[in-house]
């Protein structure tokens, strides 16, 4: 436990010091300024427009954060010898992977928190009110991106090439994002095979339809807890699979 916590803290420090992380925060401020401008121009419900645009920017940047850190960490650490140095200590591969994953979560959480605090602050300053469901939106995004993060860790252990791992994670994200829509379209079509396949994909992989931020914000607490459990199941499954793979891998 102590070694895992130590690795998580080290990952957080490493992440915060990365120029990419700081760059994302700068980009975030820029996109917020842009969304405020568009909000002022909108005719009706500017707070909702600003929240929509802000959430989309945060979603995009959070995905970039995950892809940058989770995909590159194993390759970079192997190349630079850090992985060898850490695993030559009394640290198991499971502790290493769980520690790194927890560290990425610790990096994602403040990024989302700071982003939404900034968004709320801007709304307060300009419109003297905050969008009603705003506090729940980062929670929905955190749950969704934790699942993507766990998959990114799994794919970086599985694939030997960084680019393959990156493409696999992006594909995973797109499929999970669109699986519900695809199932609906296929069920209305004339091809029963396509309908079966899309339904199978939607039932096997996590459906990101469930994490829609505005839907989540208005849902009852039971739904939120159920979604937490649903996310945890996928996270545990992906991390267990990743550790099983790493245990058998030559480093």
């Amino acid at each position: 436990m102590r070694k895992t916590a130590l690795l998580a803290r080290f990952t957080l420090i490493q992440g915060i010091k990365e120029r990419f992380f700081v760059g994302l925060l700068v980009l975030l401020v820029f996109t917020f300024a842009l969304s405020q401008y568009i909000g002022i121009l909108s005719l009706a419900n500017p707070v909702k427009v600003v929240t929509d645009l802000g959430t989309s920017s945060i979603t995009f940047l959070a995905l970039a954060l995950i892809l940058f850190f989770a995909i590159t960490f194993l390759y970079k650490e192997r190349e630079e010898g850090m992985l060898l140095l850490i695993l030559s200590r009394p640290v198991s591969r499971v502790q290493y992977l769980v520690g790194r994953f927890t560290g990425f979560l610790l990096l994602l959480a403040p990024f989302l928190a700071v982003s939404f605090l900034l968004l709320a602050g801007l709304q307060m300053a300009i419109y003297s009110r905050v969008y009603q469901g705003l506090p729940w939106i980062p929670v929905a995004l955190f749950l969704k991106f934790s699942v993507v993060l766990a998959f990114a860790v799994l794919s970086s252990v599985f694939f030997t090439e960084q680019i393959t791992s990156l493409l696999a994670t992006i594909s995973f994200y797109v499929v999970c994002q669109l699986s519900h829509q695809a199932t609906l379209i296929a069920s209305q079509g004339s091809n029963p095979f396509a309908a079966k396949i899309t339904l199978m994909v939607e039932r096997t992989l996590p459906s990101f339809e469930l994490y829609k931020p505005f839907k989540f914000a208005q849902a009852p607490l039971e739904y939120k807890l159920l979604l937490l459990f649903y996310s945890l199941l996928y996270i545990v499954a992906f991390i267990l699979l990743a550790t099983a793979l790493l245990e058998r891998k030559d480093i």
Binding site: I13, Q14, K17, E18, R19, E80, G81, M82, L84, L85, S88, R89, P90, V91
Partner: peptide
């Protein structure tokens, strides 16, 4: 088994920003 063992890999590069 690794208690009391130290290892320095070849071409070791510690994290550049630290």
């Amino acid at each position: 088994a690794k208690k009391g063992v130290g290892y320095l890999p070849e071409h070791f590069r510690p994290p550049s920003r630290l």
